[in-house]
Computed example of a mutant assay.
Amino acid sequence: MNKIVRQRYPVEKLPADLRDGLPAGRTVTVTVEESEPPSKEKLLHLLEEARKADPIPDDPVERIRALRDEDD
């Protein structure tokens, strides 16, 4: 995981959304850390949870019929 630290960084150089509430003419310490992407196991778990919440029929014809009949 990468991490970048800039000390005494001018507030004026910050993006507008990060400048809000900070006084002009001051300096800040900026720390940027790379987020760790979710593991394969975590993604599979999330997919399984999503399928449990809204199961998709295995048969494509059955799925199309279910979608078609949804409006009735």
Rank of each mutant, 00 (worst) to 15 (best):
M1E: 08
N2C: 06
K3W: 10
K3H: 11
I4F: 10
V5T: 13
V5W: 07
R6S: 05
R6I: 09
R6D: 02
R6C: 07
Q7I: 15
Q7H: 08
Y9K: 02
Y9I: 02
Y9T: 01
P10V: 00
P10D: 00
V11C: 01
V11I: 00
V11Y: 00
E12Y: 01
E12W: 02
K13G: 00
L14P: 00
L14H: 03
P15E: 04
A16E: 15
D17M: 03
D17P: 05
L18M: 13
R19G: 03
R19L: 09
R19T: 09
D20T: 08
G21H: 09
G21K: 07
P23R: 11
G25V: 02
G25W: 07
G25S: 13
R26C: 14
R26W: 15
T27W: 03
T27C: 13
T29C: 09
T29Y: 05
T29Q: 10
T29A: 07
V30L: 12
V30H: 03
T31L: 04
T31S: 06
T31A: 05
T31E: 09
E34R: 03
E34L: 04
E36Y: 12
E36H: 10
P38A: 00
P38V: 00
S39C: 06
S39T: 10
K40W: 08
K40V: 04
K40D: 11
E41K: 01
E41W: 02
E41H: 01
K42S: 05
L43Q: 02
L43D: 03
L44H: 12
L44Y: 06
H45D: 11
H45N: 08
L46I: 01
E48P: 06
E48W: 09
E49W: 04
E49D: 06
A50L: 04
R51P: 01
R51S: 03
K52Q: 13
K52E: 13
A53P: 04
A53K: 15
D54F: 09
D54Y: 03
D54V: 10
P55T: 05
I56F: 04
P57A: 13
P57Y: 11
P57T: 14
P57E: 14
D58H: 15
D59S: 10
D59R: 07
D59I: 05
P60C: 11
P60L: 10
P60N: 13
P60F: 13
P60D: 14
V61Q: 13
E62S: 15
E62F: 11
I64E: 07
R65G: 04
R65M: 12
A66V: 13
A66G: 13
A66C: 12
A66S: 15
A66I: 14
A66E: 15
L67I: 12
L67R: 03
L67T: 09
R68Y: 09
D69N: 13
D71F: 10
D72Y: 09
D72V: 11
